[in-house]
Design a protein around this nucleic acid. Structure first.
Length: 355
DNA sequence: AATACGGGGGC
DNA sequence: GCCCCAGTATT
């Protein structure tokens, strides 16, 4: 059965399946646009199962837009710790602040206005508009491109940004005017649970409409070109304590990777050649190797070796560095590789105490 | 158009 | 290992 000649039947099949089978997710029990907004930011490039506990904690801690606006950045980052893409939470606060100050705490319900808010791109705009306000707007994410490319045999390369416009146009033509929320969420739910990279077509509620399935070519879609292999960066990290059992950490730059999160001092080994960097880490201190591991980011890999040692007597501490007690270290927002090091440090401590 | 930006789960 | 995830901002 062709979709283009049976749009109403397709909508009916998708919606009835979605309304019957949809997962019970925390953000599906609210119509508060702010809560929908928070969930959509968290769900960017992040799986549902990962998001759920973060969403629950975040809403409990910042139940209103006003409460979020007042939060310190370190508290925000602590709530986001381990979730990744940390600029998302800064942008979220910035966007919410704009709404509180310029829109009387009412999330604007037009694509033009909502798209001007920090952190809200084409997908998130459509998601909030359709889910929170019931407006017929496209919300094209990776799921939707995979589902639609199979349904309609669209073989344009989804790695090319301009290709997304094709899918947005298809959705605007296909979207259910009565229930745009369930339509958009239904497509995403389908992509997340059935029309997965390895599709489970026998469970699919709309397979009779699917051109790829009819030709047995579902695994050929979507078409996506390969990406370049990423860089491996050797880094050395130093978990140093003083005679008061305080640990030396520094706040990362406010720009770039893991911005404003805390770490044990760390250098890329290539830069260890320079005398300046050498001087910083060589202070006549005895170092022992603590652990080594690789940490994979989206665009690079750290090949990390961490050393630990005791700083005795007087040493000049560079600007931006600070000694923290165990309890204070615990409370700092840290990226996952630093959490791994900290876990190892704590194990060593309890091991020593136990013996 | 290409790149930066986290982290984890599935195979 | 590789792929991909309810993407956006910057260049």
């Amino acid at each position: 059965m062709q979709i283009v000649e049976n749009k109403d039947k397709f909508r009916e099949a998708l919606l009835s399946w979605y309304l019957r089978e949809k997962r019970d997710l925390p953000w599906r029990n609210t119509s508060n646009p702010y809560y929908i907004w928070v969930s959509e930011i968290m769900l960017q490039q992040t799986r549902v199962d990962t998001v759920i506990p973060y969403y629950e904690r975040f809403i409990a801690r910042f139940p209103t837009m006003e409460s979020l606006v007042e939060a310190d950045e370190s508290d925000l980052l602590k709530m986001w710790e381990g979730l990744g893409y940390y600029s998302r939470v800064r942008n979220l606060q910035s966007g919410v602040k704009e709404v509180v100050e310029n829109y009387g705490s009412e999330v604007p319900a037009s694509r033009k206005e909502i798209s001007e808010l920090k952190g809200i791109g084409p997908y998130t705009a459509g998601a909030i508009l359709s889910i929170a306000f019931g407006l017929p707007e496209h919300a094209v994410d990776g799921n939707v491109m995979r589902v639609i490319s199979r349904l309609l045999l669209i073989d344009d390369d989804i790695a090319i940004p301009r290709t997304k416009r094709i899918f947005e146009n298809v959705i605007m033509d296909l979207i259910d005017q009565e229930d745009p929320s369930s339509f958009n969420q239904g497509l995403m739910e389908l992509g997340a649970t059935i029309c997965t990279p390895k599709p489970k077509c026998l469970l699919c509620p709309v397979r009779e409409f699917c051109l790829a399935f009819n030709e047995g070519r579902q695994e050929e879609f979507p078409v996506k070109t390969k990406k370049v292999k990423m860089k491996v960066v050797p880094v050395a990290s130093f978990a140093m304590r003083n005679e008061k059992n305080e640990w030396l950490l520094r706040k990362r730059s406010e720009k770039g990777l893991l911005a404003n999160l805390w770490e044990f001092p760390m250098i890329e080994l290539a830069s260890l050649q320079t005398p300046k960097e050498l001087a910083r880490v060589e202070c006549d201190i005895e170092l022992t190797e603590l652990l080594s591991f690789k940490h994979v980011f989206s665009h690079l890999t750290w090949d990390l070796t961490c050393y630990t040692g005791l700083i005795q007597g007087d040493h000049k501490i560079p600007d931006g560095y600070h000694f923290f007690s165990n309890k204070e270290v615990e409370e700092l927002p840290k990226p996952v590789p630093v959490l791994k090091i900290w876990d190892e440090v704590k194990q060593q401590l309890t091991g020593n105490d136990g013996k």
